[in-house]
Design a protein around this nucleic acid. Structure first.
Lengths: 209, 209
DNA sequence: GCCTAGTTACACAGGTCTGTGTACCTATTT
DNA sequence: AAATAGGTACACAGACCTGTGTAACTAGGC
């Protein structure tokens, strides 16, 4: 077990466990003892891989910062698909809001946390902006910001309410904003909207991914 | 100082200080010693007014739960005014997001915290809904939810970015959604929009309340 | 078979936290 | 002036936290 891959495997395992606990229970709420115990390793081993809890927190946030991957779907599908993907994530019982927003809320004025959180939010806004530019939208900057507001708004609302329908509401608002900007949103989205209304009449939205 | 008003005055002072510290630094980050020291009273006095920190947290959230007061302004002015008011609050340096969302993010699955947070969010949504009904909007329920998304989205974005312009972006999106729902939004809002663009060219948005 | 890197068990330092116990003080009321 | 309500000072219990020190163990590479 002294091989290099084994070492990185252990580090990954620590990080993965820290990620899960930090995200689900809050960063301050989880001690390093808890993380080590969860894996079944000694606290000493944990500190052999990460010099401090702060380092572990940084690694946690860095790990969460995944750049949106390239897609062969159309820009419009990618934009609207964001909200479908959100709805799916909201429906999972281990969804607990945006880790960056939560970290800023919890850790307050910590500089490095703020920095990575801002970078993350901005990267997502730019992702929207580039897609909007591909669609020929005139004021792509402003619309990208507005779409980002809808994303974060639905996340915050779902965090409190546990209601995946917040993602659908955001998608419908996004559709209106896109149409208003001259984007032709096809009948597919409209059909989704109709289907949603029907489903709502009969009960929970949860069953739908 | 043994009079009844003095007693409630002390209780208010404790609560007020707890509110400020909890909100600015986070609930877990602030100990009861810190609160007592800030006021200049002994910890014993604090515990004579609140049986536990949990009770203080509950009182803090209850205090933040203020029902939106009645207004003689038009429903449309009230709706759009929400976003102006947000922009003003974002510009204050002591704004640190929504206390309810932050509490849920920090305290996780605490039942009572979740309960009051849900109640708060729903009360605001209903406030929007009633104003929309007064405006004759057809699907007031859905639009109220969408406006609430914009409010919470701008709050989350400002928490991370410290950028009051997020409130303006939300207001512009809200204007589009309202127009799409058949509401006539007058030139006042449009003028605001034009003025904003001009301002933006010359620099910071902060100076404007 | 030996070396070495990694892990383990465990104690402990030093700090913070919530909450309590106790004896004393002070101001108002009667 | 005495009684009473409330505040103060201060020690302390008991829990939890981060981080370190140390000696022993274990498995792979030579």
């Amino acid at each position: 077990m002294a091989t290099l891959p084994a070492k990185t495997a252990m580090k990954d395992r620590i990080l993965q466990t820290a990620d899960r606990l930090f995200y689900l229970q809050g960063i301050r709420a989880v001690g390093v003892d808890t993380i080590a115990a969860e894996i079944g390793i000694s606290k000493r081993t944990l500190y052999n891989h990460f010099p401090s809890k702060d380092a572990l927190i940084s690694a946690y946030l860095a790990r969460r910062f995944v750049a949106p991957r390239a897609s062969d779907k159309s820009p419009l599908e990618q934009i609207l698909g964001t909200f479908d993907s959100l709805e799916r994530r909201f429906s999972a019982k281990d969804f607990r809001g945006c880790p960056f927003v939560n970290a800023v809320a919890e850790l307050g004025e910590d500089r490095s946390v703020r920095k990575v959180a801002v970078a993350f939010k901005e990267s997502r806004r730019l992702w929207f902006r580039d897609l909007l530019l591909q669609l020929g939208v005139k004021d792509a900057e402003a619309l990208a910001t507005q779409l980002a507001l809808l994303v974060d708004g639905s996340i915050a609302q779902d965090l409190v309410r546990n209601d995946p329908a917040m993602a659908r509401a955001a998608k419908e608002a996004a559709t209106v904003l896109l149409r208003n900007a001259g984007v032709k949103v096809g009948r597919a989205a409209a059909a989704n909207k109709r289907a949603a209304k029907k489903r709502q009449r009969y009960g929970s939205l949860r069953s739908q991914g």
